[in-house]
Write a protein that binds this DNA or RNA. Structure first.
Lengths: 140, 140
DNA sequence: CGGGATCCTTACGGATACTG
DNA sequence: CAGTATCCGTAAGGATCCCG
């Protein structure tokens, strides 16, 4: 499932600290030596980049929310920054925006299929952070 | 395995799109409504934040490297930025620095126990990015 | 209600030159 | 070799006010 990359020279250092880095760099897109937009890692980073991004995503993981609901959930997030984050997520195809007819205007933001793929990443962030904190915890 | 958090009012919306968000927000540290430094997610984000950070971490996942080796692996990363990234990772306790005696001076950077906890996160980033790309891929 | 338009300030990344 | 010291342009985050 690594695809076609002929000789696997990606697995030196065997026995050093991990057997192979095939899981770390499964295919050619990950063997980049600089931040390239097409690299999956960069795509994921872009999705969660920007302050408040993970919190907005977390709220939307619970289901669709209106602009005002998001503001209510995250009181110290200003409208401008929320608009910025939503615009970026929209541009990346991770969320979708539905205008509900009537007055006052109501909009609803929801995750797209692509956006839902970020759920495991949010969990991984939480997990990794927890384990880092544990590893750094003062000895007793 | 969620610990002691008494009444679980975090699991409304059952059947909407996921059963529960207990896996998303396992404990009180994740129920924050703003970016707080103590939240595990923020800790993880801090670890991978900053341009080139994930690439530097990826290199170190392969084992210890000197300053020059890192520069050679990532040719378009300038010394200043590399110094910045290493300094941040050092300050966060994710890597350690060993000065090897002799001349010319040689230093070696390696992951700490805490830093190694980031490996699954890098993989999760790659995975999530891949799946997002797949979900966004043009229909055929 | 759901934003858009400004303005401001700081943080960040990158380039270049220099040093122990 | 392994950085440090400057300088700089841009972009990001936040505050405030306004509008359909």
């Amino acid at each position: 499932m690594v695809g076609t990359h002929g000789t696997s020279e990606a697995k030196r250092l065997v026995g050093h600290q991990t057997e192979t880095d095939a899981e770390l760099v499964p295919d050619a897109r990950g063997r980049t030596n600089r931040p390239e937009p097409g690299c999956p890692v960069e795509v994921a980073l872009a999705a969660i980049s920007g302050r408040w991004a993970t919190l907005v995503l977390r709220e939307l993981m619970h289901g669709p929310h209106s602009f005002g609901e998001l503001r209510a959930s995250l009181p110290s997030l200003t409208a401008k920054v929320l608009t910025d984050r939503l615009g970026e997520l929209l541009a990346q195809g991770l969320i979708a925006k539905d205008r509900l007819p009537g007055f006052p205007v109501r909009t609803s933001y929801r995750l797209t299929e692509a956006g839902m793929e970020l759920r495991p990443l949010l969990i991984a962030l939480y997990d990794a952070g927890s384990r880092v904190l544990a590893a750094l915890a003062p000895r007793d």
